[in-house]
Design a protein around this nucleic acid. Structure first.
Lengths: 202, 202
DNA sequence: ACCTGAACACCGTTCAAGT
DNA sequence: ACCTGAACACCGTTCAAGT
């Protein structure tokens, strides 16, 4: 599994072929099938393993649910970005029933319940938070996986070069659309969501 | 392109092979390369084409930015869910510079600006909205693409069967985690975000 | 009983050869 | 000048044959 994750991290999903993994391990492809049933299962297990890299946020300072959620969301994002090619697997909930995924989900659910949300609110809040983190991280990971270069200059040029007659707002905002600060943007959206949850509690 | 989209819709991404597409069109694979440079470009163009299915939300009733954003977000989600296998492509921003993607982005940006947000707020709001819709839709599309069956009963059983000692919140919420209402959840998160934006405007 | 070379049925892409 | 059959270099997976 460690070799498989290294392959995916270094060259993307398509770098992990059964032949390459086998030769990296000094064996043949047929041997791999004695330990794991398919390439897909390797990927699913790899995702759960990297979720295990997230250090559980300890439920310290009694009642700081907001701080715990912020820390957890940020840790999830950073962990996924360390393995951008594996991030898309986060979409299939079938891939999210491994031990580490379950432990992480449990921590979020219990934090939200301790905050005072009722059952329905807890599940709704859990889902909205996960979906937001997934959306941000997928997009970031997609750009990162491409070749590692976001190249803000060329993006700005692309936007600025569009027809201002048909796309006036896009052209006017070209500089801001190109020079992004992923960290700040992530915090902005998370704050919006957490403010909303906090208001629900009052 | 229409044949390519039909193939992807009916059997997932892996159903679209150059050989299958060629034979569906009554020709050989080499011929395809006289019209399109690669399989990847076919997929990128397919995504932009389906974005064109979204009817532009007319900026009617002066100043109802919130209604326009809600309608646009809902239309984007529904359109992507009609082509679940293509949804993951929405992650790569390279795939999002086709004419329909640009037109859609322009509409959102101009709606937010007309609402009264400044430049930075407009871009931040645009990104947070897109990321949320992407996150929700990816997850839904991933489940949908699997075999079409979410099978709430088996999901509930899975959650309920976990160890209540280590995963108490998950087990307690098993029924709610299994019996989901995607439409309501989507509206819940969108409301949280729009409430936040509305408060920024005051 | 355990392992694996070689095969099967596929891929995306290219190019020499055909018309 | 335009088209494409056949090849190249790969895949995931299986199984008969080896030890």
């Amino acid at each position: 599994m460690r070799t498989a994750i290294d392959l995916v991290d270094s060259g993307g999903l398509e770098e992990l072929s059964m032949r390459r993994l086998a030769s990296e391990l000094g064996t043949g492809t047929a041997t791999l099938y004695r330990h794991l049933p398919s390439r897909e299962v390797i990927l699913v297990e790899a995702l759960d393993l990297i979720l295990g890299e997230i250090a559980p946020v300890p439920p310290t300072r009694a009642g700081d649910w907001r701080g715990e959620i912020e820390a957890g969301a940020s840790a999830l994002r950073k962990t996924l970005l360390r393995h951008p090619a594996l991030t898309p697997l986060f979409a299939s909930s079938r891939a999210l029933n491994g031990p580490h995924a379950l432990a992480g989900r449990e921590r979020i659910l219990s934090t939200l319940q301790r905050a005072g949300l009722d059952e329905r609110q807890t599940v709704d809040a859990y889902l909205v938070l996960i979906h937001y983190v997934v959306g941000v991280t997928f997009t970031e990971a997609g750009d990162l996986a491409r070749t590692g270069d976001p190249a803000p200059a060329s993006v700005r040029q692309f936007y600025a070069g569009l027809d201002p007659g048909t796309l006036p707002a896009t052209v006017a905002l070209a500089a801001r659309l190109a020079d992004r600060d992923a960290e700040r943007e992530f915090a902005f959206g998370l704050r919006l969501l957490l403010d909303g949850l906090e208001r629900m509690l009052r």
